[in-house]
Design a protein around this nucleic acid. Structure first.
Lengths: 250, 250
DNA sequence: CCTACCGATCGGTAGG
DNA sequence: CCTACCGATCGGTAGG
């Protein structure tokens, strides 16, 4: 545990923004306002369908004024997505500090990844809805996205081999857990739903239940379930007996 | 039981399209081509960022020609989303025919909901990326979306009360399972990943593990455990496929 | 920070 | 007369 120095809110207060260092606190404040309003509009209307005029009107200012703080619409989106990438990186750092078995480390990952999404669901929606529209961003975000996937699938594979977890396709289950987490952005409302703490607890519990080794008295469900189970077992045997990496499908 | 008339592929062949009935088979074919190309472009570039010219160019035709088949860009998106809504409704019908305990019914729901997404991930992305941009569609899709949520959370609550499932927040877990399923559209590639059948099997297995009431003792692990598990699965398949006589092909 | 204004391009439709 | 299109251009509006 690294303590609360990695908490997003504390971080924003402690480390001065780039804009604050170069142009003063006033500019940083206005930029934050613009980013917040733009995030809300991009998330609800879409990036391409949101005009700079709409952002200006929502802020009670003129459209050209926005160009004093940002070079254009693209830079606003870029800054927003960079903030989301920073959230993911902080979550990885925080989860990497968790010691213990595969269960504890997976729970730490789920909580750390889900917390920033639960804190600002509207912003989190931007990842899927606007990486499409500004293709340059996808390259910037690909690195941290791959790291997240590797972290989750890695701890699942470890738990699989140690026997803590049931035999499963680490990649598919990792995507399933990430889907469970990321989907938060499209349904969770802090105002009407459970508290963020209760939510992250429930999610990590679900993720652990998903992979935890269980007793064998429940047979596989249906023919497809039995075939899927045998396929998992074959994959597991292949990895264990034949070694690692030689026959993996990317 | 409605029988196999609810299978998507069979349905398209058996029941003539609206366009086919009114304007002939030639028109229905062209409309399907336009819809397919538009879905690909909308999913990769976004709805607002895709021009009618891009759709026409990709099809090797002129832009005005598109207006002979559709009144405009909005109608193309509307038709696409209606097709996705129909998929969800067919999935609900198919899952409603499954008899058994909460486990079997939940597995049926997961398989039925995941199958059309696995079959056409690019199309499925439209739900999230373009309901934003055409607000009228959200109202049309809200009904079936609520039905899906109620079906999943309902069967979870039932399993909870009967003791089949662990105590959990049915709403949160339902959204988690739906997130796991819907996220498929953003990572699953039928060309490089597991087969759709293996995938839906894996997903329903994960969903069941997520909610199943668990016991404390762990099953056998390691190579011998995997072999023992496969022997159990083979026995199950033998009983099901050879004993029953009717091999259900899903 | 506004007013004024640009080159480019949008979705949709005319006549033939 | 029908259908299935084409080349050219409409009025508005986008980001900058």
């Amino acid at each position: 545990m690294r303590g609360d120095s990695t908490a997003p809110n504390a971080d924003e207060q402690r480390v001065p923004d780039r804009a604050e260092r170069t142009r003063g606190p006033r500019r940083a404040l206005v930029e934050a306002e613009i980013l917040d309003e733009a995030a809300r509009l991009f998330a609800t209307r879409g990036f391409a369908a949101t005009s700079m005029q709409e952002i200006a009107t929502a802020l009670g200012t003129s459209r050209p004024a926005l160009y004093h703080y940002f070079t254009g619409k693209d830079e606003i989106l870029t800054r927003l997505v960079q903030g989301l990438a920073d959230d993911s990186r902080r979550a990885l750092d925080q989860a990497a500090a968790v010691r213990g078995g595969a269960e504890e480390r997976l729970a730490g990952l789920v909580c750390a990844l889900a917390a920033p999404i639960a804190a600002a669901p509207l912003r989190a929606r931007l990842i899927r809805s606007s990486l499409i529209e500004l293709l340059d961003l996808d390259g910037q975000f690909a690195a941290v996205r791959d790291e997240v996937l590797l972290a989750v699938s890695g701890v699942i594979d470890e738990g699989c081999e140690s026997g803590e977890f049931r035999r499963c396709d680490g990649r598919v289950v990792a995507f399933s857990i990430l889907g469970m987490i990321n989907w938060l952005a499209w349904w969770y409302d802090p105002a009407t739903g459970p508290s963020p703490e209760a939510l992250t607890g429930e999610l990590s519990e679900s993720a652990l239940a998903m992979v935890r080794a269980q007793t064998a008295d429940h047979g596989p469900v249906g023919v497809s379930g039995a075939i899927a189970a045998m396929r998992r077992d074959l994959d597991f045997l292949e990895r264990t007996v034949c070694g690692d990496g030689s026959v993996t499908k990317s």
